[in-house]
């Protein structure tokens, strides 16, 4: 009984130290959502030639504070993608919540809140101005 208890406590302590919010996990989650939103946005603007395949999104996330992982408001994600043969790099301020979901703020990446359709002139909400995603929080 005692050994089982000790093993349980040790197990809990080790899992307590591990967190789903690692730079690698956040980078891939962010890149996926960014690509999805970017392709949808361009499609709304009439550009159907942009796909996740042509975009080649790559992203790198890191915490700017003393901690290197876990929930916090001091995450930054840089994303690099290819559009019309030019490579673009943008940086988003990130907030990672304890439940594993995150929020990206596009202000630093100069994403406008509203987009105007160049043909019709109609305005729509820019989904890239602020967007959410969630990490897989299950035990790995």
């Amino acid at each position: 009984m005692k050994r089982v208890g000790v093993a349980l406590v040790l197990g809990l302590l080790t899992t307590a130290c591990s967190t789903p919010a690692t730079p690698a996990a956040l980078s891939s989650s962010f890149a996926e959502v960014f690509a999805g939103l970017y392709v949808a946005q361009q499609a709304h603007l009439g550009r159907t030639d942009v796909t996740a395949g042509t975009l080649h999104p790559r992203s790198l996330c890191r915490r700017t504070g003393p901690a290197s992982q876990g929930p916090g408001e001091d995450w930054v994600c840089a994303v690099q993608y290819v559009d019309a043969d030019s490579t673009v790099t943008q940086s988003f301020d990130m907030q990672v919540k304890p439940d594993g979901c995150w929020r990206a703020d596009g202000a630093a990446a100069s994403q406008p809140a509203v987009l105007a359709d160049p043909v019709s002139g109609q305005t729509s909400v820019n989904q890239l101005a602020e967007f959410d995603g969630c990490l897989n929080t299950s035990w790995r």
Binding site: L12, T15, A16, S18, T19, P20, P98, D99, T137
Partner: peptide, 20 residues
């Protein structure tokens, strides 16, 4: 915070499992 993966044993955590 600070619970990390240990938060998964809480009974409230599964209310967020639809995120996936």
């Amino acid at each position: 915070g600070g619970l990390g993966d240990a938060a998964n044993v809480l009974l409230t955590t599964p209310f967020g499992s639809w995120h996936g």
